[in-house]
């Protein structure tokens, strides 16, 4: 099958790859350019572990045709930290114990980033809504919502910050 050359920006640097007709972005990221941060879960748009940002919008990489990303910017969890300095969302996930196995984490981080980029002080309901396409088997979601609320608050938003559910 003929391959198509595709150029896009990945976490701020230029990438050029040859893609198969119909090949999805997740495959290009993981196999083509070796960015393993977006995970392969269901491959059919139902689990959210492959969530990346395309021109700032959250997209499921498993359902995104790689060719449609030509000339666009793709951001993955690999690009979140700045050298050794973690992104505030990553720090908040760590401090709130918002990961156990970690398989959902990069998708959750990107869904959360997309939310905070357009809404600096979301309510708990808005946070729950923003990650409702992302499945987590381990955490019960509560610590993830708390982490995102906390990251928003520390970034200067978070006027709607509320108490977390679980108290020990």
């Amino acid at each position: 099958m003929a391959k198509t050359p595709v150029q896009f920006r990945l976490n701020g640097s230029d990438k050029a790859v040859f893609v198969d007709g119909g090949e999805n972005l997740l495959n290009v990221l993981r196999r083509g350019v070796g960015d393993m941060s977006a995970k392969y879960g269901c491959g059919q748009g139902t689990c959210g572990v492959c969530t990346v940002l395309v021109d700032g919008e959250p997209q499921l990489a498993c359902l995104t045709l790689a060719e449609t990303c030509a000339g666009r910017s793709v951001d993955t969890a690999l690009g979140l930290s700045d050298g050794p300095n973690l992104h505030p969302l990553q720090t908040a996930f760590m401090e709130h114990f918002a990961a156990q196995c970690g398989f959902c984490t990069s998708g959750m981080l990107m869904a959360a980033k997309a939310l905070l980029d357009r809404n600096a002080s979301p309510t708990r309901e808005e946070v729950a809504e923003a990650i409702s396409g992302n499945i987590c088997r381990c955490t019960g979601y509560e610590p993830i919502i708390n982490a995102i609320m906390d990251a928003a608050a520390k970034r200067g938003g978070g006027s709607n910050r509320e108490q977390g559910h679980a108290r020990v």
Binding site: C42, A128, S132, I135, Y141, H165, A166, V168
Partner: peptide, 19 residues
């Protein structure tokens, strides 16, 4: 698949007090 295997999502959780 996850369309048919139903699980509660982040909007379905409830407060939990633990000792």
């Amino acid at each position: 698949d996850f369309n048919e295997y139903v699980m509660p999502g982040p909007g379905d959780i409830c407060p939990h007090d633990i000792a």
